[in-house]
Amino acid sequence: MSASTMAGSPGQTETRAIKRSPYPGWFFTPAAIVYTVLFLAPTFASLYFSLTRWTLFDATFIGLDNFAQFLREPFLIKGLINTVIYAVVTSGLKVVVGLLLAVMLTSQIVARGYLRSVIFFPVLVSTVGVGITFTVLMHPTQGMINEGLAIFGITGPGWLTDPNLALYSVALVDVWKGVGLATVIYIAGLVAIPRDYYEAARIDGATPWQNFWYVTLPLCRPATSTVITLSFIGGLRTFDLIWAMTKGGPGFASDTIASVIYKQYQAGFYGLSTAGNVVLFILIAVLVVPLTMFLNRKQGHE
């Protein structure tokens, strides 16, 4: 019996066993129905309705007019730019501050439990509550922040009333609320780095700074990639904090696409609002897909 004589074509004596898989396919059904009806169907419908003037009862096809309007109206363009600025600022700060806090919290510092809890807790608090609280704290004359700065002789700015500053102030509050999540993600990434690398680096005579730069930073890249992706998508989609704090104001100074979508919806411009959705979707796709590809490609090299 040699291999060559045995290697006949497969399935000559086909007796297909029809056994049921032990993993029932119908387990997908409930989730699939809810997800398809309430998420996928509206998403596909939005592609059509974004090309219409729409009253919910009837839709008039107007081609790309809604999108043209998005690129024409200065306040809509402003919203587009603000969205990107907001996402970049918040995710950038969360990466830097989150990593620093995580490095601090994984070192031999006292009161680690307290620090970790205090930094993380805002993640769980109502965004509206946080927004309202900081609106009060950031009041230009009666807010606690400026009153506190006055003690040191600093005249605080109009955090939310200065059109040049409002967006960044909201972003700052976003970082305050969200940095705890970035921190715990980084902590999980840092404790997963085997101690051997640090010991090897120490034998090679690395300074703490070199340790951080050549060991910690490259090895916690998966965490960095998670933090960036999560907070960047979150930043692009952000609505509740902005709405609770400035409603896009003053003027249109802190409008983002999400707040524009809501405003157009309130005003009854359903087609335009839906076009805003599509624009946001395209923006996310255009920015996030290359970003994750970049982050993952770098990982593959290590």
């Binding site: 497969p10 399935g11 000559q12 004596t13 086909e14 007796t15 066993a17 056994k19």
Partner: peptide, 10 residues
Amino acid sequence: AGLEDISGGE
């Protein structure tokens, strides 16, 4: 054991 389907034969 019956944990893999049989493609052919008996």
